[in-house]
């Protein structure tokens, strides 16, 4: 890689040192970097370059000369912050952000709450049928979001849903979850179904890593199981909770597959329901990659800021008390 050549040896030696230094250079620099080359090249081509490319695109706009017909009449021009201004003032974008924030505020507490509850129950020695439940709850993680949205999408149809069937037996008519007002809940349920098991496994793994002496001690002190769970287990696995929350938030902001798959079944979902759907529409349906690039930079920055703020707040709470 480029770094290999630009990095000089520790110190310029005398001519007598040269053969040894050459060998040293090979084993200390060339070999590790040549072994890292596949990773570094792929990283540069498929991660670093695209990020820079998006940044460049986001500051450009289409320039049309003449009638805008024919070859060479369209070129790009520097747009400054125009794309950002129009992204941030676009009511469609703001609407999609608002929908996704609502979605996240409903989904993340429910998903992590249930994951934590299930993990604690699995960890409790009084629970039976643990391995069956663990496998069953983790199973949806094997189902891709498109397939799970498809399954739930059919289950939401009043003609198919067993809940609507049951309600009809009692002479009631339930509202369809695919109604415009309820479709957010419909998507939340799909994501909850797909995500609760994975988060449960993460929390359960860190619960298993806690030495059991701590629980023995708590028991000797007369701690009930619920007290042990709240006062000892949850604080001990707090780092896992932080990480699952962080990953869930990043995933929430990027929701795309679920609403896209549900659209054929739910007319209430617009092509700009989530920010990512808006980016997709701008880039590929409207052929406006420049504003799509600006929108995606805004989403990425928002992701970073939210992650950073979240970690700051959590760290202050978790470690501020000890010091």
């Amino acid at each position: 890689m480029a770094m290999t050549e630009t990095r000089p040896g520790p110190a310029a030696g005398t001519t007598a040192d040269t053969p040894r230094r050459a060998k040293n250079f090979t084993s200390r620099v060339l070999i590790p970097y040549s072994m890292l080359a596949p990773g570094i090249i792929l990283f540069l081509v498929f991660m670093a370059a695209p990020i820079i490319y998006t940044l460049v695109l986001s500051f450009q706009k289409k320039k049309v000369s003449g009638l805008g017909l024919g070859k060479g009449s369209q070129s790009t021009a520097f747009a400054g912050l125009d794309n950002y201004v129009s992204a941030l003032t676009d009511p469609e974008f703001l609407g999609s952000v608002l929908r996704v924030l609502t979605y996240g505020l409903i989904l993340i507490p429910l998903m992590l709450g249930f994951a934590l509850l299930f993990a604690l129950l699995l960890d409790s020695r009084r629970t039976r049928a643990g391995s069956f439940s663990r496998t069953a709850i983790f199973l949806p993680y094997a189902v891709p979001a498109v397939i799970s949205s498809l399954l739930w999408g059919f289950l939401y149809l009043p003609g198919v849903s067993p809940f609507h069937f049951l309600a009809r037996q009692f002479g009631m008519e339930l509202p369809s979850l695919l109604d415009p007002n309820l479709v957010t809940f419909a998507i939340c349920n799909i994501a909850l179904w797909g995500g609760v098991g994975f988060n449960m496994i993460v929390m359960y793994t860190s619960l298993k890593a806690v030495p059991s002496e701590i629980y023995e001690a708590a028991k000797l002190d007369g701690c009930s199981e619920i007290q042990t769970a709240i006062r000892i287990k949850i604080p001990i696995i707090a780092p896992s909770l932080v990480m699952t929350a962080l990953f869930s938030m990043i995933a929430t902001l990027q929701v795309f597959a679920e609403p896209t798959t549900l659209r054929p079944l739910a007319n209430s979902l617009s092509t700009s329901w989530s920010p990512l759907m808006l980016v997709y529409r701008d880039a590929f349906t409207r052929n406006d990659v420049f504003s799509a690039a600006a929108t995606s930079i805004v989403i990425a920055l928002a992701t970073f800021i939210i992650s950073f703020l979240f970690l700051r707040i959590v760290q202050k709470r978790a470690f501020g008390q000890e010091n």
């Binding site: 249930f114 509850l117 299930f118 129950l121 699995l122 409790s124 020695r125 009084r126 629970t127 039976r128 049928a129 643990g130 069956f132 439940s133 069953a136 709850i137 983790f138 199973l139 949806p140 189902v143 799970s148 399954l151 739930w152 289950l155 067993p162 179904w193 609760v196 098991g197 028991k219 199981e225």
Partner: peptide
């Protein structure tokens, strides 16, 4: 007490398992 199975916690877990299995069974 700890050795005695808890019906409540087992029940909650099984409900969670059924929720997760439901679309697959369907």
């Amino acid at each position: 007490i700890r050795e005695k199975p808890s019906y409540v916690s087992t029940g909650i877990l099984i409900l969670g398992a059924l929720y997760c299995l439901f679309p697959v069974i369907w």
